[in-house]
Design a protein around this nucleic acid. Structure first.
Lengths: 207, 207, 207, 207
DNA sequence: CATGAATGAGAGTTCATTCAT
DNA sequence: GATGAATGAACTCTCATTCAT
């Protein structure tokens, strides 16, 4: 028995044993980022691990399930930061600026996660399906609706407003990842100015 | 007489060839839209056709190649409309408004194509690789740069401006596809107002 | 009609029209030599031709059939030379020496044919099946039997004698093909001396 | 106790692994012999087994790889016998005679292996590539060269001498396989007499 | 629980052959 | 008879998943 333990201790990088789950998620993040969701196989994931193929199925039912877990985990990491930003913000402008900056910062410093997110086929679907992610976006949405109610933002369709923020954020994030000469702060200022300026010019909503 | 027959023969052949190619592309568009690029197999595509499996390979070397052809074809359909819009436009505002409207209209009335485009893993990459698509985006970019030079648009980073347009356009397009109660015209007005209003508020570019 | 002819005249190397059969055989010899029988496909053969794929089947039913034709043709080229050698020969020794020399000469100067013959899976079988080839070996055998009857060669099993000649001939031929420093004449002298010397030492046959 | 179980478990696994590998090799030998290398497919091989198709690839990367393993295994079976023969032999004559007899015996009693070897396209190449086989022929060659040095055999080109032995051996082996009325011992005597007699008659080598 | 070989469905692809032109 | 695209059986190989150890 003790022999067994020793063997494992040697074999694995002492990975806080029992956290195989984490090892799998980490491997998945890395591999997804490298190959894209469609191209990576479960084999690729476990190969990037010290575990045996069968072990995968003790933790996840399928590739899709790890992917979901990965998304959740990712959202779990950004959300607190976004929430902190929201609390710190004194004005709607500060809130938007802070959110963009936080997101861009995250993207710039957590390359592989973002790469996974972007290069992904079921991105869309997963963004909606995964509870953590839904929650993250919902919080933003709630704030937007509050801003509309309080008159800070003109009475526009919240869906479209959300879409604009998300679209601008993700697309600019792509450039941040691709180019080295763009500064996170500049990008955040750009996005904030564009969005806030744009919002003021919005037509009233048809009711 | 024999010449005539030959001519006809060749005519008929060319005809079936063209129609088979189109049949494959059409089937591909449909299937990609339904299953997403990663999940669809070459078999799925030919199954949606009355051709034999081997025939696929007379026209395309791989799944990726049909996908590219599909993208090209799609770009080929929108670009003339966008170009017409550009010519008709008297002001930058009209140009932007027209472009958004054209794009949204296309998306709303050509559902499956857009679905294919969005749900796609290698979207990003393909969008860059495919010559037709590159050209389409380049044209928009050129106009943007002209607008900057002529002072109509503040001197901002054209990459980021492009990213904003593209991001807003695609993300709103998603909602158009998902919801039935959004009007193409309203969406175009929203996007135009947001973008043009935002652009005016943009900070000067660091040089 | 004349147009058609012109086109062909241009397209093909004026190949004494109607001798498409020969074109196919020639292509087959070349391709078999390059890829080996098993690995070459009918496609490979017609690709090495100016003809269309379907045309192949106007001349041969299958790959196997061309191969057989190729073997026949080959045998047809060596046999007259071997026969001439036999007629010229004054003694059994001269006959054997001449046969070896002729064969080695043929091998050395008709590389690709021999390569085809050697690298071939069904070599064995075909050597037996193909009438021309059978005939070629039978002639040699008849001479051997005559030599036995006339007492020039000890009374040994003709099959084994044949096998010895054939084995030595083919195996040495391989070295001729593989090495550049072996002279056809030396090889023939070697084989002749070995065989004739050996024959004299042979045990009487059990009857 | 648990240790014991583990040991047994590992034992059983290793056992099935080894037996599966052998099952595949055996099936391959049989099928290659029946259809020839070129014509047999990996499917044919596993079909001759009670394993699943995918299992093949747990043991061999390709058809070529099994073939090589098969050749190795074959050589591994004859070589010890040839080596024993060499050790027992008191004279060069005894050595040659023993080698022929051993080889013919092997051929006669291990039909399918020899059939595989003969009917094979890449015979040549494989004979050279496979380490075991190379080694087997090298040993014979070394002995030949020693015999030349010691003056037992005239100073002839060792390549050609080898070719003669090999050619005679293989070609006569064919007859042993094809005919039932040839005795292994007679064949060995024939080949030995032919070769030894022939060797004495050989011309001096050009230097 | 971990392991890793076995499984077999199914993916992509090739190719001998047919047949309308 | 020549053409060359269409055909579809069959092949190689991968991979998610299971299950004995």
């Amino acid at each position: 028995m003790s022999l067994d333990l020793d063997a494992k201790a040697r074999g694995k990088r002492e990975e806080t044993k029992a956290s195989n789950r984490q090892a799998i998620i980490d491997a998945a993040r890395q591999v997804f980022a490298e190959l894209g969701y469609g191209a990576t196989t479960v084999r690729d994931i476990i190969r990037a691990t010290d575990l045996a193929s069968g072990t995968f199925y003790n933790y996840f039912k399928s590739k899709e399930e790890v992917f979901q877990a990965l998304q959740d985990e990712t959202a779990l990491r950004v959300r607190p930061r976004l929430r902190a930003e929201r609390i710190r913000a004194r004005t709607f402008e500060e809130f938007i600026a802070g959110s963009f900056r936080t997101f861009f910062d995250f993207v710039k410093n957590d390359h592989s996660t973002f790469a996974t997110m972007r290069r992904n086929p079921e991105m869309q679907r997963v963004r909606i399906d995964t509870p953590e992610v839904v929650a993250g976006f919902d919080e933003l949405r709630v704030d937007l609706e509050r801003a509309i109610e309080s008159g800070v933002v003109p009475d526009a369709d919240p869906d479209l407003l959300m879409a604009s923020i998300v679209g601008v954020a993700f697309e600019i994030a792509n450039h941040l990842v691709a180019r080295d000469d763009i500064d996170v702060d500049d990008a955040a200022k750009f996005a904030t100015a564009l969005f806030l300026g744009g919002v003021q010019a919005l037509p009233k909503r048809k009711r």
